[in-house]
Design a protein around this nucleic acid. Structure first.
Lengths: 225, 225
DNA sequence: ATACTATTTCAGAAAAATTTCAGATTTAAA
DNA sequence: TTTAAATCTGAAATTTTTCTGAAATAGTAT
């Protein structure tokens, strides 16, 4: 579960980040319009918290941008303005919820949960590739109808690839998605090698018709037979 | 078993809360329309007691709201008005029962039990898994026909798992369901470990064919042999 | 108040998952 | 073919999570 906080005020950004990390989300932050755009284009977040009063551009136009890109990220708008106008405009533009400042952290948490619940139950219940089926909310993976046991990181990695079959993914992108932001300038990818190795072994042992192939110098891609 | 009391009059709220807590329910309260909405969106209650005369909005519109959100929570309407109108409207809007003030606490309790029975076991009086049988409204548990003595928290935990056999449940979810929402940002789960340990010991000693297995990094699940 | 029971906290032990490491193997390009 | 970089591997080290019995605290009933 990755959440992007788009908020220019450092203190609030900090509070939100710390609170949500305690709630076990992977949290990333963006302080400016441009930074936010870059992150959004690079990754699909489970939920985006968007302050509509950004210094270098109105948050609502960011929302417009997001929808124009056909992104599916869910958005909760945070705003100091409690004006009906902004709220309505935000929701019309496709935001999923609206929260006026000042707000309670537990209230924010409740809204996030509600958005995620809606997203997951409304969205697809399983992801299929070859003879592998993955149930995102149950942490269950089946190969040819048989359940296999994956550890947490193995599961996260597989989930990531299952959502992007046949696409080449760099190790940096993978690391960022599965391990989070703090893994930014890493000089060796041993931890990825170790995980990929174990995941491959389990998939092979179960007779999966998918394979995580390495693309020399670029990264990996999920190959579907 | 979590119950939400939506009632603006503090004294009645207090009486209900104390009584229901003694009856071993986890009780939360909301005094206003908005507070209630927030709580409802955040969590699915076993039963909601709804006073339809709220200061900041009619209770019936809250009921409408609830159904629009596709929530499955059961609702018992409490009302000072004994008008047929309100009763009919309430039940039409999907309430499960109706109780006119003033009412007897034991009567309320009976209605709640009946609603819960209908909800949880489709009217069944017991929940079975393996050689374990649990009687929800008697707080009785039998293993292979022999009654075993469980403490309150142990019972609540077992009940929770018995209703969700084979499903992985996070410690946060378990804590929220069994301990209620004052446990909001916990940084350690020692109290869960302690309870699970004791419950496991009792189940094992009685020769139960079910087992609460831990799923490393995720939570627990009830395994049925 | 007092005694009794239930629950939570604590500190250390155990178990499990993840990362690091050192050496082997593969790859692309000179 | 030779070379250097990239990737893979099994095992060890580290970190994280879970478990345990005992002690402290909270809760109930007398």
């Amino acid at each position: 579960m990755k959440i992007l906080i788009i908020e220019d005020e450092p203190s609030l950004q900090d509070i939100l980040q710390q609170y949500l990390q305690k709630e076990r989300y992977i949290v990333e932050t963006a302080g400016t319009f441009n930074e936010a755009i870059t992150k959004i284009e690079d990754y699909e977040y489970s939920c985006i918290l968007l302050d509509i009063m950004l210094p270098d551009g109105n948050g609502l136009s960011l929302l417009k941008h997001l929808k124009a890109l056909n992104k599916k990220d869910n958005v909760i708008i945070l705003s100091a303005k409690d004006s009906i106008d902004d709220k309505v405009t935000g929701l019309e533009l496709g935001a999923d919820d609206y929260l006026a400042k000042p707000f309670d952290l537990s209230e924010l948490n409740a809204r996030i949960k509600s958005v995620l619940r809606r997203k997951h139950s409304g969205g697809q219940l399983s992801i299929d590739n070859g003879n592998v089926r993955l149930y995102p909310d149950k942490f269950d993976v089946f190969v040819a109808g048989e359940k296999i046991e994956l550890l947490r990181k193995e599961y996260d990695i597989l989930h990531f690839f299952m959502a992007r079959p046949e696409f080449v993914v760099s190790k940096n992108t993978l690391a960022e998605a599965v391990w989070g932001d703090h893994i930014d300038q890493v000089d060796n990818f041993d931890f990825i090698y170790a995980q990929i190795k174990n995941l491959r072994k389990k998939l092979k042992a179960a007779g999966a018709t998918i394979e995580i192939k390495s693309v020399y110098g670029l990264g990996y891609k999920l190959f579907v037979e």
